[in-house]
């Protein structure tokens, strides 16, 4: 059978997939909104336990990585393979740094004994349990997406290197970029909800 290439269809499919991701996280935001409305005070206090500086750093680097991915697409469109690979390397590096930060952040919480099912949490009441349950679950699912993103970037970079992705056929890079922006988009909302508002 002739393989029929239709870049727009591929991109269309990617967008539909992004919609499913948006609604998946969307429902977690619904859960968050419901419990915040039930325990406003406990959520406010619990939110102050999180490290705003670390959260801000992660937000900033994730935004930068989004920009570098977007620019890597411009680079490939110009046929600038070297620039494209450089930009993708930066993105990959940032994704790893994000995970390292996350590791330290979660580690600190565990050290305090703030993890699902811990005794320390149990003493702090329902609102706090729910806040940290949501925090770990939502940032956990988000981190899982970052890990998948790291895998995708490694694959895409190899393809660029092998010239499988090039000036006229870069839909893989474009779709990976879309995925990465989705991950960024989710974080844009997670960050204020957990770290900032109180």
């Amino acid at each position: 059978m002739t393989i029929h290439r239709d870049d727009l269809a591929d991109k269309f499919g990617m967008w539909l997939f992004i919609f499913t991701e948006l609604l998946l996280f969307g429902m977690l935001f619904v859960v968050y909104a419901v419990y915040r409305s039930m325990h406003p005070e406990a959520f406010r206090i619990a939110g102050e336990e999180l490290d705003v500086a670390l959260g801000t750093i992660n937000t900033v680097i994730l935004l930068i990585s989004s920009a570098t991915v977007a620019m890597s697409i411009t680079a490939i469109q110009k046929g600038d393979k070297k620039r494209c690979l450089q930009l993708l390397s930066i993105t990959l590096l940032i994704a790893v740094i994000f995970m390292v930060n996350k590791y330290f952040e979660w580690g600190a919480k565990f050290e305090y004994g703030f993890y699902p099912g811990s005794d320390a949490l149990a003493e702090l009441g329902h609102g706090t349990i729910l806040f940290f349950g949501l925090y770990f679950f939502m940032t956990g699912i988000h981190a899982l997406h970052i890990l998948i993103g790291i895998g995708l970037f490694i694959y895409v970079m190899l393809q660029v290197k092998k010239n499988k992705i090039h000036q006229t056929d870069y839909i893989w890079l474009e779709n990976t970029g879309l995925y990465w922006h989705l991950v960024d988009l989710i974080w844009i909302f997670l960050f204020p909800l957990f770290y900032l508002i109180h």
Binding site: S66, V69, A70, H181, D184, L185, I188
Partner: peptide, 8 residues
């Protein structure tokens, strides 16, 4: 979010 969606 709008900036990311529109430009990136």
């Amino acid at each position: 979010a709008v900036i990311v969606l529109a430009w990136y």
